[in-house]
Amino acid sequence: MLAFILRRILQSLVVMLVVALVSFALFRYVGDPISTMMGQEATIADREALRERLGLNDPFIVQFFDFVSRAVQGDFGISYRLQQPVMELILSRLPATLELALVSGVLAFVFGVGFGVYTALNRRGWLSTTIMSVSLIGVSLPTFLIGVLLIWLFAVELQWLPSFGRGEVVDLGSWWSTGFLTPSGRASLILPAITLGLYQMTLIMRLVRAEMLEVLRTDYIKFARARGLSNRAIHFGHALKNTMVPVITITGLQLGAIIAFAIITETVFQWPGVGALFINSVRFVDVPVMAAYLMLIAVIFVVINLIVDLLYYAVDPRLRVERAGAGH
């Protein structure tokens, strides 16, 4: 078990190093930061001085090593655009994105599993048919369109919910600001969370349904029925637990996707998160922020994958044995 975790962490480090290389390459190949920073009137001498001062004339390897060693310490430099430390910028925006991702992830998981199980158990009911048809919309409509439609319906026409922003936030500790504690903060979360989570919900729902139907056909479910176990025990004990094994993987990866793809939702709802920060940075070729964002997303994916692997252990006893056997 411990050996397995160590091995996975080592693999994760390799992945991170590759991502670091890609984000570092941004500095060299996405335009010339000097011209963005200095404007039209700067002299060539001034430009060269700045170039020298920022270390942009050093060899590639030296610059990369410098980049990685500072990144490890959480130093991604200064934003070209906002002239603030990148790490500070991202940390100040991160709570908004994480809270949004958490709420939509939980929504997607709870409703996805719930609807999936329901439609699998009542395959021919009219409600199942309706849910399945509506889910097609969730899969096929682009996120920004869903967001715009929701804003039009609930913010413009019905005026029930705010159309943009985070509402009132409360500071917790030195850097975490939360929207959970105020009514306007909670109301502001609803539309973006639905927009962001709808696709994931339909995906999870369809996956759960397909897996559940598969599991319900297995011999051990037949045998459980032949032993006279109650439907509840069969469906929610024996069948659902087996269904969850593949669902956990997909859900974990989707959580990463939710954080990464929050960009679109954050843009539509003017959500002050890292996604919006990233989009604005792209517009101004603010390479340090872009590079840091890339690294952040990579870290999140790597951590989620690690957690998913560990959850496998918790759910499936067969893995525990095989891995332990291989370890000795």
Binding site: D219, Y220, F223, A224, A226, R227, G228
Partner: peptide, 25 residues
Amino acid sequence: MRRIRGRRIGMVFQDPLTSLNPLYT
């Protein structure tokens, strides 16, 4: 019928490798 299954009529299936739920002891 559920109350009869297992209680009054038991059943043994063909393949023991697939008859038992792998996730429960």
